[in-house]
Simulated assay, not measured.
Amino acid sequence: MENYHSTIIGKGEPLIFLPATGFPGIEGLNIAEYLSDTYECHLVDLPGIGKSEGISDKVTVAKIAQWIKVYIDHHQIDQAVFVGHSLGRD
């Protein structure tokens, strides 16, 4: 697995928090603390931000989707809630 960094808080249904571009996953800490009784919150550092490795070549929506899929497969997550904070559009 590539070098991914995340902070995992809480127990329950998996929730993947994707922060705004330029910020590490810990940006969602207040959300994770609020939801930690119901959700296992994964505060993921996006590629090349915080402690996660970057993506080589041009970053595309498809590459980000594959990057996230590798993360959820590694954590054996079959189904998750996703929260995105200001990721913008392609």
Rank of each mutant, 00 (worst) to 15 (best):
S56H: 15
A62T: 14
G28V: 05
K69A: 15
P19N: 10
A65Y: 02
G28K: 06
D37E: 15
G28L: 07
N3K: 14
Q66T: 05
H85Q: 14
G28Y: 03
M1Q: 07
E33H: 10
V59K: 01
H85A: 15
Y39H: 15
D90P: 15
G25T: 11
I16T: 05
F17Y: 12
Q76E: 14
R89N: 00
I31F: 06
L43C: 09
K11N: 10
G84P: 03
F23A: 04
H75N: 15
S36D: 08
Q79L: 12
I16H: 05
G84F: 02
E27M: 05
E13G: 12
L43R: 09
D90F: 14
Y4V: 01
V83A: 04
D37Y: 13
F23P: 01
D73Y: 10
E33Y: 11
T38N: 10
G10S: 13
P19M: 08
L29I: 14
C41T: 12
H42A: 12
K58L: 12
G10I: 13
A32Q: 06
Q76P: 06
P19F: 03
P14M: 03
G54T: 04
L43E: 10
Y71P: 02
D90K: 14
Q66Y: 05
M1S: 09
Q76A: 14
I26C: 01
W67E: 06
I9E: 06
T60I: 12
H74F: 12
Y71M: 05
E2Y: 01
D57I: 04
A65Q: 05
V83R: 01
E53K: 04
A80H: 07
L29W: 06
T7R: 04
F17I: 02
D73C: 13
E53W: 00
S52T: 12
E27T: 02
M1V: 05
V44W: 03
R89T: 00
Y4I: 01
Y34Q: 06
I16A: 04
G54R: 03
E2C: 00
T7I: 07
D73H: 13
P24C: 14
L46R: 03
L29Q: 14
I8S: 07
A62I: 14
Y4A: 02
A80K: 04
L18Y: 01
I16G: 06
D90C: 12
H5D: 09
P47S: 00
A32H: 02
I72D: 08
W67S: 04
D37N: 15
C41E: 08
L18R: 01
G10Q: 11
N30T: 13
Y4Q: 01
R89E: 00
L46Q: 05
L35K: 09
Y34E: 07
F23Q: 04
C41R: 08
I68Y: 09
I55N: 10
L87G: 07
Q76C: 10
T60A: 09
P47N: 00
K11L: 05
Y4E: 01
K69T: 15
L46Y: 02
H74I: 11
E53H: 00
H74C: 08
A32E: 11
V83W: 02
K69M: 14
F17E: 02
Y39N: 12
G28D: 12
H75W: 12
L35R: 09
D45P: 11
K51Q: 08
P47Q: 00
I68K: 07
A32N: 09
A62C: 11
S56A: 15
T60Y: 13
H75C: 10
G50C: 00
H74L: 14
